[in-house]
Design a protein around this nucleic acid. Sequence first.
DNA 1: GCACTGTATTTACATTGTAAGCCTCCAACC
DNA 2: GGTTGGAGGCTTACAATGTAAATACAGTGC
Lengths: 237, 237
Amino acid sequence: MLESNPSPGPEPDRAGPEKPRLERQRILQAGVDFIEQHGARQLTMRRLGSALGVEAMSLYRYVPSRESLLDGIVETVIDELYGDPEVYVEPRHGWQDYLLRLAHGLRRLALKHPQVFPLVATRPTEAPWVRPPLRSLRWVESFLAALTSSGFSDRAAVATYRAFSSFLLGHLLLEVAALGADVGPVEEADPHPPASADLDGYPLLQQLQDLLSEDRSAQEFEESLENLMDRLEALAP
Amino acid sequence: MLESNPSPGPEPDRAGPEKPRLERQRILQAGVDFIEQHGARQLTMRRLGSALGVEAMSLYRYVPSRESLLDGIVETVIDELYGDPEVYVEPRHGWQDYLLRLAHGLRRLALKHPQVFPLVATRPTEAPWVRPPLRSLRWVESFLAALTSSGFSDRAAVATYRAFSSFLLGHLLLEVAALGADVGPVEEADPHPPASADLDGYPLLQQLQDLLSEDRSAQEFEESLENLMDRLEALAP
DNA sequence: GCACTGTATTTACATTGTAAGCCTCCAACC
DNA sequence: GGTTGGAGGCTTACAATGTAAATACAGTGC
């Protein structure tokens, strides 16, 4: 995504709903918005094209395939982390602060993009040890640097990285799934009814349904995260 | 071209590759096997049909759509839990024993079906509080019963259920993803090369690549599970 | 023989991803 | 000016998919 567009002549400063020219970033952003509105299953090249006022095939000048379009969409979302002022790429106030900010930043991201997040969580990564939801070499490098520079041994840093990603993946995936997002494929545009399933043979479920439906995700996230941090402190120097 | 041996007798006990008649369970099992061999992306009605020696449309007598076929496949795999002699539906030796057995049973399932497990983890469930990887009303009921019958309060049982599913989902999804399974869609039948990506700008990743590639999933699972159990004991009566 | 019934096939169609080629406009040179 | 070239978008085309609808066909009861 190296843009070296050297000022395309005069300024296209015309007012009105012009077609501002197709660009990779514009396509990816439109993809994010489309998925957030209609779900990933509904995203087809033709539909995304027409959302941009363009034919499907035009997209292929900027994106080699639908698969890589999805990869780009995921990357676009993850890149928002760099724009989050609460998240630091460098550990400014110790590793605990770094991890807490990163965790909360990722949670914000997941909640902001509940439909895209399942892709962030489940799309194959470029190497097996690049784990969702961090997904990017830069962030993994930053993560490990934060820890080793705080005195963690190599092993401890790697162990922390693994524990941290498992924790986030489990929590956030379930949290966005509970929001009614499509995790995985499917979604028939069927915003299911109250979903008061037939719990006839399940007395406990009937009894506990209210409790089960209660949303305590924020508190649970904080508590589990705190527990994780306590555990990680045992590995710290 | 098809079968020139219609097996006229009542018993189809002839040796040889008979077509034992289509049945829902046979289709679902074939689906599990197919996905395990070729990945979920490759599963099409036509291909699954021909794996069963039958036309695509024949499957529709037993399965209303591809989506529900996938649901059935997921259910089939989860149902294997009932056949696991190490997993008890009732807590025979206390709730800790129950949870440990269940966790290990689910991990065994995930490792046995690394290609199907991502579907188990990410397919929408019938109610938002039916969380992967348990996914079934019966198991959730069993889970909650095990805890409440051990003296857990309703709230504590529900909290335990949530913590337990998050933990399993995160760990197992990442563990099967590391096995090279397709989490999510994609997979171009491209069994990627050693994947020695270009780590030029990432000195720490270069330095830690061996550690990062080490497989410590079993130990990590045990350790995190034990930690979870410790945490849960705080909620116990 | 005949009709009935449940199972598998055939045919058909809309939708998808994407290859290949075409058209059109605009900038750069003569 | 005219010409050219190339980039950006469009048209056409095709194979693969999910699945509706009609059909064929075997087995059973009369």
